[in-house]
Computed example of a mutant assay.
Amino acid sequence: MPAESPVPVLPPPIRSDDPASFPASVLRDRHPAIVARVLADVPFAAPVRRSLATLLQDPTVTPLPRDAHDCEDWDRWGEPYFGRSMFEVPFLWAENYFYRRLLYATGYHEPGPWRGIDPFGPQKAADVPGEEELRALDALQVLPEEEQASALVAASLWGNRADLGFQLAQREAGEVHERVDDLVVDDTDLLWKHLDRRGAGNGTVCVVADNAGRELLPDLVLIDFLLRTGRAARVELHVKPAPYFVSDALTADVLDELRRFPADSAIGRRLSAALRDGTLELVTDAFYCAPLEFPQMPESLAARFGAARLTILKGDLNYRRLVGDRSWPAETSFLSTTGYFPGPVAALRTVKSDVVVGLAAGAAAKLPASWRTSGAFAMVQVRA
């Protein structure tokens, strides 16, 4: 592992109190669009519909109702913010709070007929990969290993565009962005050097998933490649314990994806067999649905990451949790912002929010004004 850079002075957390900012647009525009879509897709009765409408009427942060199973945790996390507007508290916290209130409004955790029903399920079901995509990824197996490795990282990286909340907001705003495939940081060679099949012990690779559907598919094919080529002895695939950020992957989404592989797909058969024999393990933790960043992860997760040969974090939310959802100068060292992480870590992320570190000096000035939020640029960053 390289020598760590000094820990930088922490800039302030990103907030949503500037009406012209991207975070303000998420709370003001994206969240109502998400609620409207849920109401259109799921035939909730009037009490649930009223509860969802209330979410949008008052942005004041209040404690969860006392019958929420995790109300004491949210009391602790929310104590500094109660009575304040969601626009005035840290953006990452406000987003997590919105999704937790949405799950309470729909009765996801509470006893009743809607318990365990994913309010975003219809949206996920409409955004699944087709057989053509499945067979295209299956066909990569005939390529030389180095070409497979490069193609699978690219597929897993750009699959992160399949973020339903992001897509919905873009459609609602009438925005069309030219999506220029452009890696603003590319540590792909370092990633594969660290995962060289000749590496001592090989060990476990943790993959912390982001979205279901079209992003999860190439993630699964990448996992199969790691196991098939001996670059990992086993893989842990970490998923959310409850519906979150619209399209985030759950255990049910992984199983649905595996069922979509054609019957003659060797990849589908190998992945199912790996789940049965434990070389592929599904992992989840309440932390993944909490308003926290990775420095606040529980000891059990830190131990898993510390024991792993590499942890691969997918997507924008995991990136924000990794480096801190703060107003970093773009040239801030990735090594310094991730030095606390208990083991080697890689971030594969399509850029869809303001947080960026690790750019070369002057690189940000050469990019379009909206590059951080357009979804047209991506980053592969590694601290090995």
Score class of each variant (00 low, 15 high):
W77M: 11
I34A: 00
L102A: 03
P122A: 03
V26Q: 05
A68H: 13
A94C: 05
P129K: 01
A24S: 13
P59N: 01
R115G: 02
R135F: 11
R30Y: 04
F98C: 04
R15D: 09
D118H: 12
F120M: 05
D18H: 10
R76C: 09
P119W: 02
V142F: 06
W93M: 08
L52S: 01
Y81T: 08
P32Q: 03
N96W: 03
P23D: 03
E133N: 07
S51Y: 04
A40L: 06
R49C: 07
F22M: 13
H109C: 08
P144R: 12
P113Y: 09
V89K: 00
W74P: 03
A125Y: 10
A45H: 12
A24K: 03
F82Q: 00
L137F: 09
A105K: 00
H109D: 13
R30Q: 14
T106V: 15
P90H: 00
E95Q: 13
V142K: 12
D18Q: 12
R49T: 10
A139N: 15
E79T: 13
P11L: 14
P63M: 12
V48I: 15
N96H: 13
C71H: 14
I117Y: 06
D138C: 05
L134I: 13
D18M: 10
P65G: 07
D58T: 03
P59T: 01
P65Y: 09
I14P: 01
P11N: 08
T62E: 14
Q141A: 15
A33W: 10
P12K: 12
T54L: 09
M86P: 02
L134T: 02
H109P: 02
P129I: 00
P23E: 06
Y81I: 09
R15G: 05
Q141H: 14
L92Q: 09
E146V: 14
R135M: 09
F120Y: 15
A24L: 05
Q141M: 13
E146T: 14
R66Y: 02
L52P: 03
L140Y: 02
F87Y: 15
P113N: 09
R135E: 12
R28L: 06
T54Q: 11
A126K: 15
C71A: 15
P47D: 05
P47T: 03
